[in-house]
Design a protein around this nucleic acid. Structure first.
Lengths: 337, 337
DNA sequence: GTTAGCACTCTTCCTTGGTGAGTGCTAACA
DNA sequence: TGTTAGCACTCACCAAGGAAGAGTGCTAAC
């Protein structure tokens, strides 16, 4: 494939991404000064089609990039990764808001991504199978209640409200907290859950507290073993002419509902950047969509940021936004812990 | 309006709610055994139209209930409120999941509502202008961090992660927590926010903690003065043939984005049940929708649960679901505090 | 190797006529 | 007086038939 073919292919991708309309030979000469006539372009396009880089919806329509064309384009984009390193200023500013906890950060990132890209964003927090408890603390609440707060070594926080005896003041709650922390800190959430399951029916004064710990531990254990996913901006899909039919939009949305399925697809991604184009996504209902995922680091583990949109998506800009947010997430966790 | 007219009107509403297709005179005789011929029904329908209870999309279509008809139907439904008192078993079971905090409960209720009704749900938590701080507590976290937890008298909890000196162990953090609580407890969040604004640039060892408190206080103050809204299931609108055009669906969704506008409409509702039908909603973009809100109690204040869907909605079932969830929310808060 | 010209294809949009659901009116009937 | 059958009429809906336009492939000339 010579240079001119390559340039024409790039023009077609660029134009189709922008307009969603099949690109004809005249359109190219009108919009992009390539120095040859439509007829020549036609010959080249004919060659490109033979090579498998272009599809023709029907004989009298323009050409549309094939999966192979997007693949070429994206692989090239990733190879010249330096162009993606320049941070996306808008994304930086957008995501500068203050974040407190892991989940906040993930949800916040998902929201930022979906608003910046105007597509659907997905964030996978990594599973942390060996997460250990560092602190348990009871915080007094009004009317005989207390907030049980559980903190793990990875900075995950969970809390629940308990009913406790009115006779317990702040100091008493703190004393209990200390002894609980002493007993349980350093143990994994799974271990704690099993320990307390054994105690379950023991009864007694502090039963409610134990139940609370057990509940939190099991919540955390669940979260520790399964990766969790956040989705935002699912209904941005309506902005794309590809999804102008409600039935298509609905099928897209119902695919998005099934988070386990999505998770199953992206879970294994180890590369810094993974791009799945069209059928590569292995979601037949939305085989005209693409999914880009970018890794971020969270201690020893890694999570994924992703964007789902039509196959015809602005790959370059989307990748920049993704890498920018991914980098700031990685930095944030690195500094916080 | 005599009894037979009323019965015919009810049939038309019932059928139109179920099918979204204008109801003709023959349809009525076929589906509902009313004992008279289509011609008679036609005469009655003609009368009902003259009375303003029916509309006719065009001359050779069946009839469609008017706003006035829905109004009559709904007012009647509310008047015979006892029929709504029977709790919706499915809703009960669905909503039986354990809840920890106010926001959790609200969000959870919103989710349950949208899934049960298959429409868009809205939950408004009440503003609590005189909310006061009861506890401030620092919980140790790994790597020189601490979780600052703030609890108010109404049971609202907020927390944020702070960086603190490594030299502070659990006991030291507790000592700080005690003195903070002593100083600030009983004060309103607004007061605290202003106090700390004055101190802002003071610097010093505990500056980070003070900043944390200030931030939380201002978050809470914002929440205390503004009511907060949760929306769920916005894209359920796609399930209705009325919104089969993507452009309509999009305009619905963009109305839903503007929470302040929604809030402005429902904020003032004092009744136990408020039903806004069609234009009564004063949202011209979606003037073929209805909004039902039901009050729930939260201490001295009240919040609202609502469902938004097409004007042609199953009012009776929706009201039952709403009142059931509302009652269980009210109960939950009453017992918890 | 490039370009102009031309016949050809096929989608899109508009028009047109047929079909059927539903109505309103009138006249007959109980 | 209320109910019913019959009938002409209206109008949305749908399928079929062009006309227009965009785009192609091929051929022949530059």
């Amino acid at each position: 494939m010579d240079d001119r073919k390559r340039r024409i292919l790039d023009f077609i991708i660029q134009d189709y991404v922008a307009t969603a309309v099949p690109v004809g030979s005249r359109t190219i000469t009108r919009k992009y000064d390539i120095g040859v006539s439509p007829a020549t372009i036609r010959n080249e396009m004919s060659d490109l089609e033979a090579l498998g880089y272009l599809d023709q919806p029907h004989v009298s329509a323009g050409r549309v990039p094939s999966v192979k064309a997007y693949r070429l384009y994206v692989d090239d984009l990733i190879a010249r990764a330096d162009s993606l390193l320049a941070p996306d200023e808008e994304a930086w500013r957008y995501f500068a808001g203050r974040l407190t906890q892991l989940e906040d950060a993930a949800q916040c990132a998902a929201k930022a991504l979906s608003e910046l890209t105007r597509m659907t964003s997905v964030v996978m927090m990594p599973s942390q199978p060996d997460m250990r408890i560092t602190t348990l603390q009871l915080v007094p609440m009004p009317k005989g209640a207390a907030l049980l707060v559980m903190v793990t070594d990875s900075g995950l926080v969970r809390e629940t409200v308990l009913r406790v005896s009115d006779s317990l003041d702040a100091d008493a709650l703190y004393a209990i907290s200390r002894s609980m922390t002493e007993t349980l800190s350093g143990r994994s959430v799974l271990e704690v859950q099993h320990m307390l399951d054994a105690f379950a029916a023991r009864g007694g004064a502090q039963q409610r507290v134990l139940d609370g710990i057990r509940e939190l531990a099991s919540q955390m254990a669940r979260q520790a073993s399964e990766d969790t996913v956040f989705l935002e901006g699912t209904h941005n899909i309506l902005n794309f002419p590809e999804y102008a039919e409600v039935s298509k939009a609905r099928s897209f949305l119902s695919v998005m509902e099934d988070r386990k399925r999505l998770l199953g697809i992206i879970r294994g991604d180890q590369e810094l950047i993974t791009v799945r184009i069209g059928q590569e996504l292995t979601l037949p209902e939305i085989d005209d969509c693409s999914l880009i995922t970018v890794r971020f680091e969270l201690g020893a583990y890694h999570g994924l940021l992703g964007v789902i949109g039509p196959m015809r998506m602005p790959y370059r800009q989307t990748l920049r936004t993704l890498t920018t947010i991914s980098r700031s997430l990685t930095d944030m966790f690195a500094s916080e812990e």
